[in-house]
């Protein structure tokens, strides 16, 4: 008969299993290493899930030029994912690669914002989601360039150039479509209303965020709100679109509590690695 679980040590089972096999143990919750790992997976999961979402347009965009432009954005985001999750894996110290983290975790281990798992719907909705994200992503990376962790600052500097273009592009298209025809305006206004309550999560910090901010590793989520608000109101005004009054924000993504959509994304994204573990070509 197995002995009763040890009530005093959290994760005793994992610890015992790892020790038995001589495996490295992941940093315990609350340690600076665990905070850093969480902060990095939050970044990498955002770019991974949004990158995958945008890649779903490949071959389906309204015109060839936009198809390629969307694929470029998706590839930029996946490239950034490799850097963020690669660093997360090395911080964790259990030998997990970026691919392991991307393809071998289940929904509750993903910590992306709920916004990025929203379905694509139409082209306008996809662009509105991109714009709401880019308007946060760009100042986020800018702040990360000042990170006390040189590895983070380096990735942020590289990604920042790509994302500056993403924001320029998505803002421009939101303006063109919002201030376009009656049909395009209506679709953009509808997209804005559908997505609005999913955008606020990015600015709500938890204990991990605040410890990381205190250590100068990552900015406090709340600190990015004024820049985001300014970008949003400027672009929406030019696009003749009106943001909903509500400040309600759906939350949970950062803690692994996701909408039903993430599971479906992972089914598509992970099936090959799950059916043929370790497959390469």
């Amino acid at each position: 008969m197995p002995s009763l679980p040890d009530m005093m040590t959290p994760d005793a089972e994992t610890l015992a299993r790892a020790t038995g096999k001589g495996e490295a143990v992941a940093p315990a919750t609350g340690t600076p290493e665990h905070d850093l790992f969480t902060g990095l997976t939050r970044l990498g999961d955002n770019t991974l899930i949004l990158g995958h979402r945008v890649s779903e347009w490949c071959g389906h965009a309204p015109v060839l030029e936009e198809d390629i432009a969307l694929a470029n954005v998706a590839l930029d985001l996946i490239g950034q994912t490799q850097l963020w999750l690669g660093l997360a894996g090395s911080v964790e110290g259990c030998g997990r690669s970026a691919d392991d983290l991307a393809f071998q975790r289940d929904t509750w281990h993903f910590s992306n914002l709920l916004l990025v798992e929203r379905p694509n719907r139409d082209f306008g909705h996809t662009l509105m989601r991109q714009f709401l994200f880019d308007a946060w992503h760009q100042p986020m990376l800018k702040a990360l360039e000042e990170s006390s962790d040189a590895r983070i600052a380096e990735i942020a500097a590289k990604a920042g150039k790509e994302v500056a273009y993403h924001l320029e592009r998505s803002a421009d298209l939101v303006i063109r479509l919002g201030d376009g025809t009656e049909e395009s305006h209506a679709r953009m206004q509808d997209a804005l209303e559908r997505l609005w309550s999913w955008a606020g999560e990015a600015f709500i910090g938890d204990d991990i965020d605040h410890r990381l901010a205190q250590a100068g590793v990552m900015p406090a989520p709340e600190s990015l709100r004024p820049v985001w608000d300014a970008t949003i109101s400027e672009v929406l005004a030019e696009a003749t679109l009106k943001a909903p009054e509500t400040t309600f924000a759906h939350t949970g993504g950062k803690l692994g509590r996701h909408t039903e959509h993430l599971g479906h994304i992972l089914c598509t994204m992970q099936w090959l690695q799950r059916a043929y573990p370790g497959a390469t070509w």
């Binding site: 030029e65 390629i68 432009a69 470029n72 592009r169 421009d172």
Partner: peptide, 16 residues
């Protein structure tokens, strides 16, 4: 390529 105006044409050219 196709584009509605010069600015978009440059963006598309960059991407394509």
């Amino acid at each position: 390529l196709h584009a509605p105006d010069a600015e978009m044409a440059i963006r598309h050219a960059r991407d394509v």
